[in-house]
Nucleic acid binder design. Structure first.
Lengths: 203, 203
DNA sequence: ATGTGCGTAACGCTTTCGGGTGATGCTCGT
DNA sequence: ACGAGCATCACCCGAAAGCGTTACGCACAT
């Protein structure tokens, strides 16, 4: 009976991660939490074999959550999930007791491999490895152009205006729009902008 | 007699902060509040030397709370507490009158240092970041219905679908949409969603 | 060399949006 | 009693958006 707890404040990331780790061989149960506080609150009653925890969360935040969790239960195994460039957070997290970290845009295969390894070896600690954005896991990978178009949308620009901004024809902007909608799973530009914010692709 | 007010909607974060600032030399009294409304309500009767306030809270939210507090009492000193991701919120808060900000996962030492400094120097203030004119000023106040419609948009629902969700006619949804566009200064639904995220009205 | 992904562009077609305007009823506070 | 604000609904109409499809050149990897 192997259980994993996915902790992320973003429902989207949570679901994606949940589905991803559920496919790891030997994993019987995947639960989710939306905050470090929730993990701590549930820990005594609902202990799991491995915790995947986001670094950046409202409230306690990943780092402090790991610190507290490990200080109450040194056998707790935690892998931190990080978006990018917050290496300070990762270093702190590892220093606080996390076994290692994974980039959120790691490939599904890498995620599964890491989880398998962490489950197989209780003493395992991850050597940080940088992974190429690949076919899944979490944040959809948009091209530079697609992000530019998405940003234009988030500033209330019409396709024609975005085209003028980027020296493109309106039809080309529409093509980029269509493609980024598909990648994000968005039904329209408003949805796309929302998903862009939730994934941290735009601000 | 130096007093500090900690304002955060999360009880755990509130307690953590309370304990942390209580250890700062010279601090005699630490009170807590769970919402910006509560701070405003209690301000005249229960004035404090420094307020630590969370950016992201239900109801008024940190930004608007600071704005109102400072507009009623310009001597009020507020430090915003924030997560790494909402830099816009920080900038808005500082522009609205907050003296500075702290990351929630800042170290205890950092927290104490910042609080000490703010207490020692009543004029202490972070240099406000340059903001677009549209972003300065008061947070747009949307009605409950308007927020529901905005949320629907952020989930990619069409006006007709939002209407079915909320048991309204499509025309009514359109009216709400038009009004919230005007309030937010949005040019279309994508822009409105983006502004909703930037103001912390939706997530 | 062959495929795959990206960037660019176009055309037709349907759906949806957004603005303008007007209207009714309700609940506040003054 | 009155206006202000909110919620509700309706109609028209032009302007966008969104979708399917096709196509070409280019880079990069298998």
């Amino acid at each position: 009976m192997t259980s994993i707890l996915v902790c992320d404040d973003s429902p989207l990331a949570r679901e994606t991660l949940r589905r991803a780790v559920a496919t790891v061989p030997g994993v019987d149960r995947v639960t989710t939490a939306s905050s470090g506080e929730e993990v701590l609150r549930r820990w005594t009653a609902d202990r799991v074999d491995l915790v995947l925890m986001d670094v950046r969360m409202p409230g306690l935040g990943g780092v402090e959550s790991v610190r507290r969790l490990v200080s109450t239960d040194p056998t707790a195994r935690v892998i931190m999930l990080t978006m990018a460039e917050d290496l300070d957070g990762v270093a702190l997290a590892v220093a606080s007791g996390a076994r290692g970290y994974l980039h959120k845009d790691a490939s599904r295969a890498e995620l599964r491999a890491t989880v398998s390894q962490a489950l197989a070896d209780p003493t395992w600690r991850l050597a940080p490895r940088r992974l190429r954005p690949a076919e899944v896991g979490s944040a959809p990978t948009l091209t530079a152009r697609e992000i530019q178009v998405l940003e234009g949308m988030s500033h209330g620009r019409s396709n024609a205006e975005i085209g003028r901004d980027l020296f493109l024809s309106e039809d080309t902007v529409k093509t980029h729009a269509r493609r980024l909608f598909k990648k994000l799973g968005a039904s329209d530009r408003a949805h796309a902008v929302a998903l862009g914010f939730r994934w941290g692709l735009v601000r």
